[in-house]
Design a protein around this nucleic acid. Sequence first.
DNA 1: ATTCGCAGGCTACAACTGTCAACTGTATTG
DNA 2: CAATACAGTTGACAGTTGTAGCCTGCGAAT
Lengths: 125, 125
Amino acid sequence: MLDNLAGKITDSELEVMKLLWCAKDALPVTAIREELQRTKGWEPATIKTLISRLVSKGVVRQEKRNVYYYSPVITEKEYSSWATKDLITRIYNGKARDLIASLVNSDGLSQDDIAELRELFKVEE
Amino acid sequence: MLDNLAGKITDSELEVMKLLWCAKDALPVTAIREELQRTKGWEPATIKTLISRLVSKGVVRQEKRNVYYYSPVITEKEYSSWATKDLITRIYNGKARDLIASLVNSDGLSQDDIAELRELFKVEE
DNA sequence: ATTCGCAGGCTACAACTGTCAACTGTATTG
DNA sequence: CAATACAGTTGACAGTTGTAGCCTGCGAAT
């Protein structure tokens, strides 16, 4: 269900998704515009384009009220786990453990991270 | 040193890089072409374009012999660790452990993987 | 009711990507 | 030496991405 959709979210579009993911309910353009104009310095037109593209791609749903309200079709977790899997496929020959190994031996993780992960693996199973 | 370069390697270009990374020495176009024509079904022209672009981007070096020989400027490890860091920045708000947590709770890892990782963390430090 | 602001839809446009063809010069081969 | 083959260079062309303007109609404010 994600294979066709999520792969297509670009960097700029992702900023819009992040905002929608934060919001608990659907948002009108006004709200999206205000936030992204401030944080990203984008023109209203740019923001409208990004939203339209996300709707075309099927990852954002629009709900007609007085004005359209937008909400994400896929969750942030779905997306990030898809993106991670995609990285593993493309770069680590499908081997997830190679990704982690790479993180471990390249300053990708702080000591804190490592400690926390050790916990994580202890709890698991 | 990577920030400027590596980010720009596209999917198609990556296939060329993978080949160069596998080879122990620099390769002439002939060798690259043979392999990618067979495995990817690309036309010679396509392959030549990809190589040129990689050279322009500075991630592949050409060495003049009778004919140019090509070799990677960045190592596979450098690239993959950059790409991973990039993913973490863009999607996991810079928190590496969130990436791993996501992998752990989403079928990203097989039981084998988990076992192996547990080993990895035991050995570390 | 007239005006004003803006949501939505359409258009634009340069840079980047995925694919590839045509030309040009040099090296190999008969 | 003439013909062939192909590396290297340049151009091409459609689709995607980043960024943004214009126009039209509706709803809010005067």
